[in-house]
Amino acid sequence: MSRERVLFVCTHNSARSQMAEGLLRALHGDRYEVYSAGTVATRVHPLAIEVMREIGIDISGHRSEHLDVYAGEPMDYVVTVCDAARESCPYFPARKRILHHSFPDPSAVEGTEEERRAAFRQVRDAIRDWLETTFAENARTAAQRA
């Protein structure tokens, strides 16, 4: 059985989309082939790598990529995880669904290192909860059709 392809899109492809990619791959990698990109490529944020490692997911090998890398690539789901990406993202077709769920930008949080780390943890956990609900349901629906 071929896996459905999912592309997560965020502005900088540094935190939210990277965490979403790592989480969905860990949760349902047997069902989904997962990618992430940004409207502006930067770097994977070190705190995103750190908080993902805390839950046993290694995204240290991820690279921040520009959305253009996936132009012309067929995707089953295209998911924007921030409002800015939704607004500035050129139309990117999806064979099944285009989804949007905006998560706060943990990179924008100012404060102590521990306060910033806590913001990354909160966003990581919110993304995980949303993915478990959204993509587990998609997996169940597809299995029922098979």
Rank of each mutant, 00 (worst) to 15 (best):
R86N: 11
A94P: 06
P104D: 12
A126S: 13
S88I: 05
G72D: 01
A85Q: 02
V123Y: 02
L131W: 01
C82F: 03
V79Y: 00
L131I: 09
A84I: 11
E110P: 00
A126D: 10
K96Q: 08
A71D: 06
E114N: 09
R128A: 11
R95M: 12
E113V: 09
T80Q: 05
A119N: 06
E87W: 08
Y77M: 05
L99V: 11
S102T: 12
A119L: 09
G111I: 10
R124C: 06
I98C: 09
A118E: 12
I127L: 01
Y91A: 12
T112K: 10
P104N: 03
P90H: 13
R128H: 01
F92Y: 11
V109T: 14
G111D: 04
F120M: 09
E110F: 04
D105S: 04
A108C: 06
G111P: 09
V78S: 02
F103P: 04
K96G: 02
D129V: 12
V78D: 01
R124I: 05
H66L: 14
E87A: 14
P104G: 04
S88G: 13
D125Q: 06
S64L: 06
S107D: 14
W130A: 05
A84C: 08
V81G: 00
R95N: 11
S64M: 06
D105W: 10
P106K: 12
P90Q: 07
Y77H: 02
E132C: 12
A84G: 00
P106W: 10
